[in-house]
Write a protein that binds this DNA or RNA. Structure first.
Lengths: 206, 206, 206, 206
DNA sequence: CATGAATGAGTATTCATTCAT
DNA sequence: CATGAATGAATACTCATTCAT
C-alpha cells in the first residue's frame, strides 16, 4: 500500500515478487550492483529473465523498491516502538540497537542497504536521499528533545551531531558487513551509544 | 607500498600521466566510476584512447593509482607536520583540520576519494583497504597515546573510537562534497573535534 | 479464396473476432505493422492477449485475413454493381469511384490496405499478391473490352496500362490517407479518370 | 559535402563506409528493413558489429543516409543533364528514362529505394518525404512549363498529374524489381511516356 | 611514444506465443 | 471459451582493450 508497488499491481501474489527481490538482494550483495546482471538475478530467483519485468520496471527499480521498502519498515518499527515516555538518550540508544538488530538479522540486506544502495544510477538518487534524510531527521528530533529536557549539551551544532551519529552507526554496521558478519553486532550498541554521548576525553575527575 | 606502479616505468615524464590522472578524476567525479568511459577520460585529457594504456594497466588501475597516491601524500604531509611534541588531542585536531583542508583544496579529488573510490571493482578492494587502514592506524595510534598520557578515557573500545572518528570526519566531508562544496569546511574542524572529544551529553554541572 | 480462414472454425460468432480485427486495423494504422504489438491490439480490443490466438494463428494471420476479406468484399461489390451493360470507360470510372468511396468510408482500413499491408512478413506476400492481382485482372479485363468496342487505343501495352491505372488510383488514395483524410476524395474520381483517358498532352486542336 | 555525412567525419576513407552501406542495402533488399539485423549487415560487410556504429548513428541512420545520398545523386544527374533547351515533354521522357536506367543499374538499391525505404521508423519519415517531394516538385515544374509553352493541357489538376506520373513510373519500377529484374526496363520508357501523354482513350480518328 | 580505427564480448529489455487455471 | 502470467529467444548498441601505422 504505502510501498512504491510493482509495475502492474494486478499480478497475483504468488510470491514471485518476493522471490525476485530476495534473489536480487543476494546477487547485489555478492556481485555489486553494477556487476549484477538481470540474467543472474533471474536464475537466482528461479524465473525467466522476462518475468522480472512483470514486477519491476527495470534493474534500477529493483534497488529503488528495496530502499523504499526497507526504510519504511525500519521507521515504522521504530516509531511503533517508542510512542511511550522515554528520555532522548534512551531513545537514541534504542535507535542504534534497532539498527544493529535489523542489520544482523539479514546480512545481505544490510550489505545492499549500507553499501550497494549508494552505487546505483543517477535518477535513483532521490529515493536514497529520502531514506537517508528520514534517518537524519529522526536523529535531529531526538537531539532537540534532549536539549530541551537538559540531557544534551546546547553548545553543539545539530548538523554535526546528526552527521556524527549517523556516520558512526553506519560505519560500524558497514565494517561488520564487510568483515563477513563474523562477530556479534548488537552488544556494541551500548558502548557505542555511551561513546557518542560521553566523547573520548577523560573527564578531569574534578 | 611501491606495488602496482605504472605499467611501463620507462615512460618519459612529459606530463601525460598527470594530464590523464587529472582528467580521470574530473570525469569520475562528474559521471561516477562505472558510468565513466575511457573515451571520455581520453577526450578530457586531450589524448587518444590508446595512450591511456601506455600509462595505466586499465580503467581500474587509474583509480587504484589515484588512491595510493593520495593516501601516500596525505600521510606524508601529516607525519612531516607532527614530528614535534604535542598532546594526542592536539594531534587529533590537526589530523581533522588537515583532512578538511586537503578536501577543500580540490573538490573533484575529494569527491572521488570519498565517494567513487568505494564503487570500483572487486579486485581493487585491497588498495582501498590499505588506504583506509592507514587512516585507522593513525587514529588508533593517537588514541593509544592519549590513553597513556591520561587525556583519553580508558573505558572505551579502541575499535569503536577509531570507527567513530573516521566515519564522522568522512561523513562531514562527504556531505560537503555532495552539497557542491558550497560552504567553508575548515572552520568545522574545531567544533567537530570538540564534539568527538566531549560527546553530546550535558555534563551534570557538578 | 477460402484459404487460411480462422484457426478454429468452430468458434461462436460472439463478436470477438470482429472486435479484434477492428482493433488490429486501428493499431496497425496508428503504429505501423511491425511496431504494433499483440498486447496493444488485445488492449484495444478489450480482450486478453491469449484470446487473440483463439481467432488468429498469429500476428501475420491478422493482416492476411484482413487483406483477403477486404479484397473479397471489394470485388463482390464491384461485380454485383456492374452486371449490366456499360461501356469500358464507364466501368473504369465506376471502379475508381468505388475505390475512392470505400477508402473514404474507413480511413483506418484504407491506411492499412494501402500502406501497412505491404510491410508485413515474407510469407504473407502471396495473399497480398492475390489481392493485387485481382485488381490488375479487373482493370485488364476492362481495357481489353474497351479495345474491342473501339473506345480504347490499340497501340498500348496492356501491362503498362494496368500498372498506370492501378498505381495512380493507389497513389491518390495513399496521398489522401497520409494527409490525414482531410479533403474529399470522391470528387477526384471524375477528373482522374479523365486524365487517365485523355493523357496530359494538349491535343493539337486539329 | 552536401550529403548528411557519417557520425564521425574524421574517419579515414578506407572504404569501410561504402562497404557497410552496400552490404546494408543488399541485406535490406533481401530480408526487409525490419527483419534485417545489425549482425547480418556486419557479417555481409566483413566488419565487426561495433564498426557499423563508427560510421552510422544507428540502424535507421543507414537507411536515412542511403535515401539522402540516392536522392541527391539522382537529382544532380538529372539537373546536370538538362540545363539545355528542351520541350517539357522531352524532359519528362528524359526523367523517366533516367529513373529506369538508374534502377536497372542496381536492383538492390532500387528495391530498397522503392520498397523498403518506406518501411523504416517514424522519425525518418522526414528524409523520405523530402526525397519524394523533390521528385514531385520536379514533375510539377515540367508540367507547368509544358502548360506555358502549350504542349500540355490546361484543364488538368496539377496535383493529379504529378501523382499520376510519379505513381506510374514508381509502379513500373517496383513491378520490375519485385519480378526479380528479369526483363529490360529501359525500353519501357518510351511507350510509358507516350501513354502518360496520350492517355488510353482512342482519339475519335478525326 | 602516440594514435584512433577496429574489435566483439557482454546485456538490458521487448514481445510473440503458450498453457495452467 | 477466456484469461494473463510466464516464458526465453532475439537484438541493438556500448565500450574496454588492442595493434597496425
Amino acid at each position: 500500500m504505502t510501498r512504491g508497488w510493482k509495475v502492474e499491481p494486478k499480478l497475483k501474489t504468488n510470491g514471485k515478487y518476493e522471490q525476485i527481490m530476495a534473489a536480487a538482494i543476494r546477487v547485489f550483495a555478492e556481485q555489486g550492483y553494477f556487476q549484477s546482471t538481470i540474467a543472474q538475478i533471474a536464475r537466482a530467483a528461479g524465473v525467466a529473465d522476462g518475468t522480472i519485468y512483470l514486477y519491476f520496471k527495470n534493474k534500477e527499480d529493483i534497488m529503488a523498491q528495496f530502499v523504499n521498502q526497507q526504510s519504511q519498515k525500519f521507521f515504522d518499527t521504530f516509531t511503533s516502538m517508542f510512542s511511550e515516555e522515554q528520555s532522548a538518550l534512551e531513545r537514541l540508544k534504542a535507535l542504534i540497537k534497532l539498527h544493529f538488530q535489523v542489520s544482523q538479522e539479514d546480512r545481505y540486506m544490510a550489505l545492499v542497504y549500507q553499501v550497494e544502495m549508494r552505487r546505483s544510477d543517477r535518477l535513483m538518487k532521490e529515493d536514497i536521499k529520502d531514506a537517508l534524510r528520514m534517518y537524519h531527521d529522526l536523529v535531529g528530533q531526538i537531539v532537540e528533545e534532549g536539549q530541551q529536557d537538559g540531557t544534551i549539551r546546547h553548545d553543539v551544532q545539530i548538523g554535526l551531531v546528526k552527521r556524527m551519529i549517523f556516520a558512526t552507526v553506519d560505519e560500524v554496521i558497514t565494517s561488520w558487513v564487510m568483515a563477513g558478519g563474523k562477530y556479534d553486532l548488537v552488544p556494541l550498541a551500548e558502548p557505542l551509544a555511551d561513546l557518542l554521548m560521553q566523547g573520548i576525553q577523560a573527564t578531569p575527575t574534578v
